[in-house]
């Protein structure tokens, strides 16, 4: 039995850029890491602990060790990159008007950059007040 594997395949770009290939590969690698980081984070916060017990002290104790700051920063960075690239593809597929697409993509990149800076600043700058 011959299996068709070319469904939905698009014309390759005329000029050889490997950006989309790396983007595709990045989604797999970051996705695998996020299965550990994001699902792990959900289980730590919602199943092994309960968010009802989440308070300032809890975060302060957690961020007392650099390891949890590194964990949280990796989670922040990878989820933002993974989400931004995913949304980039969704916008490319669904917005046909080039001007609107450009505006939407700029808004996306701007938002992601701002929240990356904000999140990184919080994780680095936090000093417990208690």
């Amino acid at each position: 039995m011959s299996t068709r594997t070319d469904w939905g395949r698009r014309e390759p770009p005329l000029k050889g850029s490997n950006f989309e290939l790396y983007g595709w590969f990045f989604m797999r690698i970051s996705g695998l890491l996020l299965v550990l980081l994001a699902v792990g984070h959900m289980f730590i916060m919602h199943v092994f602990n309960d968010t009802l017990n989440l308070d300032y002290e809890f975060v302060a104790a957690r961020w007392d060790t650099p390891y949890w700051r590194i964990f949280d920063w990796l989670l922040l960075t990878l989820s933002l990159l993974h989400g931004t690239n995913g949304l980039r593809v969704v916008l490319h597929d669904n917005l046909n008007d080039l001007t609107i697409r450009k505006l939407a993509l700029s808004a996306l990149y701007g938002t992601s950059l701002i929240f990356f800076i904000l999140g990184t600043y919080v994780i680095i700058a936090f000093v417990s007040q208690s």
């Binding site: 300032y56 989400g83 969704v90 999140g119």
Partner: peptide
Amino acid sequence: TGVALFGYLILHIISTALIL
């Protein structure tokens, strides 16, 4: 689910940033 999770991620960063 991907788009929804991205939206939640942004909200989550805002609420966590308030810890400062």
